[in-house]
Structure formats: structure tokens, C-alpha cells
Design a protein around this nucleic acid. Structure first.
Lengths: 229, 229
DNA sequence: AAGTGGTCTAGACCACGTC
DNA sequence: ACGTGGTCTAGACCACTTT
């Protein structure tokens, strides 16, 4: 092997952990010693170890050293792509259809979820299609107090998600995922039988403490959310 | 300000993006120029930019330079707790029940998913309960070639998940989540009506390239997976 | 006080993509 | 060919934690 890269070093260390040369809970050698062993600079070993630590494979503490995690990785990451990207990544053609756009006072349920006192909201209902087959039904409420420019958008050609991503930064988002039975309206729009199982994702986003939007996304049962770590 | 750390630089760059000094799609200055501006080494700017790229805020390509992402692909993290912890966090009492434990050759479907040629597998089916109400039905296949010690475990008192976490490191895991209709057996075990919507999580884990386990976890429709970012 | 990881620097060379 | 990011090095100093 040529000079060892931080990737090589990381792989070798993963191998040692997987094959229990380095056992869970055990302290592994210090960076300096490892650098000597791998014939590399300490910074290179450091980078490999930092990545392992970020992934939860090892735990590091100054003075005490680096230990193999007892309860490895309890965290997975997953990306929230735009529907358009999600669909185009499948090799399908994306199409968008607006169903309804109204401005109304926030219903109690939405106000409660977002922690709002009152005020007007933009209510949008739309459909995202892949190769003309329904892919996602979106039911969205936008807080016009937080995003006044949304009032001037008709969202006829572009979905609110893309517009918001481009125009409204957010500082926090809460997600939830569940299974549910399709209501008759949802079933109709998605081309499903009544009572079919649907995958429901909900998202609330905030700028600081101010609520921006609440969206409910309903997918047909063929949809699968994937991630890996 | 003292000498700029990569964190300071990262924050300043995030600020410039949030305040649209650097606009979506625009190319930002090269590392060398930024290093001069911040009075730091190029490696320090590089680290800040790499973290922004990993977070999806910017996109980098050699020769072309670094540009602000048009559609920031934000990533969310979620924790995969042990069922026991999940239930106890709800303030409920955890109970575990083994339904079936057999050693069999891998069925074709499982072999295909895991990329196995053959060999014996441990098949476990069990139920996790919260305050004596069914919480999760678990159907698990363990590759005995990768985890021979599992053959000696009866899994009568402790679920395979807890045992594996403590005894088998893994280097990669793939997750998927979907909605489905409960089969009659699942419905019976979970106390649901036939055809009720259930939330299905699947996980495959590997040590290096060697498959360790495939598990299908089925939750009643009341279950909600939450995360935030 | 001392040990270990955390970060920074200045310089170098490499790798990839574009021209 | 050339420009930009990717990575490595050798050395230095700092910061946190434990002794």
C-alpha cells in the first residue's frame, strides 16, 4: 500500500473493532502511537478517529483517551429531499397540480399545533405526480405573519415546498411519521381504495420561535422511506 | 476577535448565506482567497467548508469551486432506541415475549435481501409490550455464520435486539419505513382488526460485507416516529 | 502537573474536471 | 494544461480532564 490515507486508517480501525481486536469498552492506543504504527502524521489519525467518533463508533475524551463505544451508533441520519428530487431520482417525470388555495383564519387544530394565537393563514392542497401517477398528496398551512410574501404567490406552477426552500430559511423543524388509513378524499386523490394504508409524514418548521408552516404529506402504500448508517 | 477558528469561519459563512450576501446558486470565493480574508490557513477554511458541504449547505466541485446549494438538502437525525428504552421513556412497563425460535435454512427471500448463498439462520419471532399492550411485533433472522454465539442463546427472557447490541458490533445498517396493512397473524398478535394500517420498520445490519441480521418490526397505527432538526 | 485529544499553520503534492 | 478542492505532513500550542 502506498502512503496510508485517513480513509485507509479509518477502515483498518473499523475492521479491528468489527473483528474484536479492539473490544467494546476497551481503550485503544493514543493518536501518537497510532500515527507511528500507520506511518502517518497525527493529524491524519485524528481525522480518521474524529469521523469514527461522529458516527458513534468510538467515544473520545481528553486525557482519558479513545474507547470503543459500548452501545454503538444509536443515531441515523436521513435526508429530506424535495419531492421533485425524490421523484426525479427514481427516473420518473415530475408533475405538480394545485388543488386548492385559500386564505383563512387558522383552524383551532392548526393553531394549537403551531402555538399560534390567531391570524391569517394560507391553506394549500396539492398533488405531486411521478409519471402521471399520484406520488404524494400535500396539505399545507403557511403562517402569513411569518411569510407575508407567500400571499403574492399563486403556486399554480410550482409547489410551495420549492418556493419556501428558496425563500424562507428556517431554524428548526419537527418531523413525524406514521401509518394511517386513507380517508375517502385522500384515497380518491391518490387513486387508492378507501381504507388503504398510507404513509403519513408531517413537518412543522420555525424561524426562531415563530412558526412558519405545517404540512401533512400522504403517500400511497408503495412508498418506502430509506436511510442507512 | 482572537484568531479565527474553523467554527467562527463556518458561522460567518452560514451568516452570509442566510443573509443572502452569498445567494443560492452563486459561486463563493476560493479557499485561498477566503483564507486571506479570514487571516487563517487554507486548511482551516477547508474544514469549515467541508462541514458546510456535508450538511448540504454548499456544493463543491474541483476546478469549478464552491457554490451555495440551490436546494439545501438538510439532513435530520433520528435515534434508534432499543424497544425497551422507547417503552420505558413513555412511562410504561416493558414486557417481552418470545413466540417462536427455530433454526432453519434461509428462505429465498431473506437470502436475496441479505445477499447470502445459503447456510443456517436463527429465526425469531417475538412481541414487545408496553403495560401489557402489544407495542411491537418483531420478526428477525440472524445469520449464524456471522454470529455463531447466537446459537447458544434461548432468547426466552431478553430480546435479540438487546443481546445483539451488546454482543455484535456492526459497520453498516440499512433502514426502511413504510405503511402496510396488517396480515391476519400480525393483526392477531397486535390486537388489531384485519387489514388495519401498520407502521413497518425494517433493518439490515452488516459487519463489513457480511450480513448479520434482518429484522422486520411491525407497530400498531398509534405509533409515531418523531425527530427534529 | 501531566496526559490526551482538539485545532491551527505553512507548505506541499495530488486528483479531478474543465478548457 | 490548468485551476480548484482534497489530503498529508511536521510541528506547535491549546483545552479539557484526571491525578
Amino acid at each position: 500500500m502506498a502512503r496510508a490515507s485517513f480513509r485507509d486508517i479509518k477502515e483498518e480501525m473499523e475492521r479491528r473493532i468489527a473483528t474484536r481486536v479492539w473490544r467494546p469498552g476497551a481503550t485503544i492506543p493514543g493518536e501518537e502511537e497510532l500515527a507511528r504504527e500507520f506511518g502517518s502524521a497525527r493529524a491524519t489519525v485524528n481525522r480518521a478517529l474524529q469521523e469514527l467518533a461522529r458516527a458513534g463508533v468510538v467515544e473520545r475524551k481528553r486525557k482519558s483517551g479513545t474507547r470503543v463505544s459500548l452501545h454503538p451508533v444509536r443515531e441515523a441520519r436521513f435526508i429530506i429531499p424535495l419531492v421533485r428530487q425524490e421523484i426525479e431520482a427514481e427516473g420518473a417525470t415530475y408533475r405538480y397540480a394545485l388543488i386548492e388555495r385559500t386564505i383563512e383564519p387558522a383552524p383551532d387544530l392548526v393553531r394549537a399545533r403551531l402555538g399560534l394565537d390567531g391570524g391569517e393563514m394560507l391553506h394549500l392542497r396539492c398533488l405531486h405526480l411521478a409519471d402521471d401517477a399520484p406520488w404524494q398528496f400535500e396539505d399545507r398551512w403557511i403562517n402569513l405573519a411569518a411569510v407575508p410574501q407567500a400571499r403574492d404567490q399563486d403556486f399554480a406552477a410550482t409547489g410551495p415546498n420549492e418556493w419556501l426552500v428558496m425563500n424562507t430559511p428556517f431554524s428548526r423543524a419537527d418531523f413525524s411519521f406514521r401509518a394511517a388509513r386513507a380517508g375517502s378524499e385522500e384515497a380518491g386523490l391518490l387513486g387508492l381504495a378507501d381504507g388503504e394504508a398510507v404513509f403519513v409524514a408531517e413537518r412543522m418548521t420555525f424561524i426562531g420561535e415563530e412558526p412558519v408552516t405545517l404540512v401533512r404529506m400522504v403517500y400511497p402504500p408503495a412508498y418506502v422511506l430509506r436511510t442507512s448508517m
